[in-house]
Amino acid sequence: MSTTYRDALREALREALTRDQRVFLMGEDVGRYGGSYAVSKGLLAEFGEERIRDTPLSESAFVGAGIGAALNGMLPIVEVMTCNFSLLALDQIVNNAATIRHMSGGQFSIPLVIRMATGAGRQLAAQHSHSFEGWYAHIPGIRIVTPATLEDARGMLWTALMDPDPVIIFENAMLYNLEGELAPDAGAVDIDRAVVRRAGQDLTLVTYGGSLGKTLEAAAQLAGQGVSAEVIDLRTLRPLDMATVLGSLAKTHRMVIVDEGWKSGSLAAEIMARVMEQAFYDLDAPIARVCSLEVPIPYPKHLEDAAIPQVATIVESALRTAARHG
């Protein structure tokens, strides 16, 4: 059936709310407004105010309340409007959600799911456009997932809820309108493994989230120029599935990483470092990275476009990497 990323997310929420009475959704404007990206539209009428809870603009309090409710037997889903606003709840996420299990000697589980929008591309300027999933992936004690397809939008939520530890789902805001076919019986998917989205021989393009579509488009253009690119969708940024990445590299011996985060200290940097540590001698050329430029994302379209990875920059970087001799 034909659907969108947004509808797939909503279907996942509906399924979770139906399957388990411990599940509830809270966040800013998730109820009457229907969600700032309309993901939860209609759920208030279906499930009522107790389970679809509008919150004040108090990110720290309602994220913390999600942690407390999870510690006290619930399966909360907390929506933070965008990851930019999640910084107001960073204390709760880092000092409580990610830490309490270890600090208590393993006594307590926090089966919390936090959903947040991420990414640039809608001319919303710096305070609405950043990508912090790589940052969050730095923190032990939480799991970071980045659905990039309709199947993952539909299937990651339930698996995340069943995980006894906190999971943050980063939804790239440019994907909400993504349309495509989804099997009517689509359901839960794993949140452990990276996936090869396109097979290839000459080089490996590693990406996730909002950059997957651009990277697949780049791979299609590369094929027209005689370069066969394999595309890996990381899906989960923490813990990283390096086996899939290294498996591909063992075949192609060349790699470009596409990551909408800033380059310095980025997830792309982490992947490069791990390849150096674990598979240096598999490389026929230096790894290249296509990341966001090190500027706060600007408002005008031409500057915003230039600041983040694009099909053309991916193609260019891939061609250079494919042509380099070790």
Partner: peptide
Amino acid sequence: YGGNAIVAGGLPLAAGFALADKLM
């Protein structure tokens, strides 16, 4: 439930604990 060394860090948790009891 702790033993929280972030000043005020436990208050949001408490709101959530109590919310869970109310919902259940």
